[in-house]
């Protein structure tokens, strides 16, 4: 059973690529419309130095924006989760801000900071902090009333309740949000690089598509997807490692 579970994602992924390859060959789809995976792989190998350079750039820009989102999201989540007043005050603002398409902010960021790294970092940050805030705040708000009574009657300070009960309880929510946030951060970076960048995967793919090198565009998309899956896997491992207690029964089942 476990081996089947472990094999399943590989089989599904390989199956998708085989299907894609077959469709392209069977219907002789031109490569400037939809390149087959083999053509994308060929482009990946051919342009590897450029792809590697830009992927590395996109990766660290994403990491910086994501790190900012983690710090900011955790702090804001703790504050909103701990205080009903702050929660009701800023929640509408947060939801409103999150509803704004981040692609619309990029030009403003460019006006403020110029084309390049800073708008990309900030786009990754603005797109990925929201799930962290919401999850941490939710985790804090789930303190059982009985337990709150126990702690109150002990004369526990708010800060003790927050650190010893609230924060640990919100950690599973926090780690779950990291998995969402990291993939969003990649989206943010690439958006910014596409709209207003002079480096990175977004920039590379934009240049490639404007010269009809569609296989290269798809090679870029695959690289971004691989980076996203890789980071997701790392945070999924960290989640198991740090908040394994929240997965009781999942292993036994």
């Amino acid at each position: 059973m476990t081996t089947r579970l472990k094999l399943a994602p590989w089989i599904a992924t390989i199956g998708l690529f085989v299907f894609w390859e077959l469709v392209c060959r069977l219907f002789s789809i031109p490569e400037f419309v939809l390149p087959a995976p083999s053509q994308a792989m060929a482009a990946l190998i051919e342009f590897w130095p450029a792809i590697w350079q830009n992927a590395f750039y996109t990766f660290w820009v994403t990491m910086v924006g994501f790190a900012m989102a983690v710090v900011f999201g955790l702090v804001l989540g703790l504050v909103t989760g701990a205080s009903a007043l702050v929660y009701s005050a800023i929640y509408p603002l947060l939801v409103g801000f999150n509803s704004i398409p981040k692609v619309a902010i990029v030009p403003v960021l460019v006006v403020w900071f110029g084309i390049g790294t800073i708008p990309a970092v900030l786009t990754a940050f603005t797109i990925s902090f929201f799930p962290i805030v919401v999850n941490v705040a939710t985790g804090l708000a789930t303190l059982e009333p009985e337990l709150r009574d126990v702690l109150r009657s002990l004369g526990a300070r708010k800060v003790d309740i927050l650190l010893k009960v609230g924060l640990p309880r919100s950690m599973p929510y926090f780690f779950a949000s990291l998995k969402v946030a990291i993939t969003l951060a990649f989206v943010g970076t690439v958006i910014s690089e596409t709209v207003a960048g002079n480096a990175g995967m977004g920039h590379l793919m934009l240049s490639a598509s404007s010269s009809f090198r569609v296989p290269l565009v798809f090679a870029g998309l695959l690289v971004i997807a691989v980076m996203g899956v890789g980071m997701y896997a790392i945070f999924a491992l960290a989640e198991r490692r740090f908040v394994g207690w929240a997965f009781r029964g999942a292993d036994a089942a």
């Binding site: 009985e146 126990v150 004369g155 010893k164 929240a246």
Partner: peptide, 24 residues
């Protein structure tokens, strides 16, 4: 209470010690 409300990330011993950690 009816619900034991133990903290799932703490061991049994650490749960029992909680009141001493936080009480005035």
């Amino acid at each position: 209470f009816q619900n034991a409300t133990l903290l799932p990330w703490r061991t049994t011993l650490e749960n029992v010690l909680l009141p001493l950690e936080v009480s005035r």
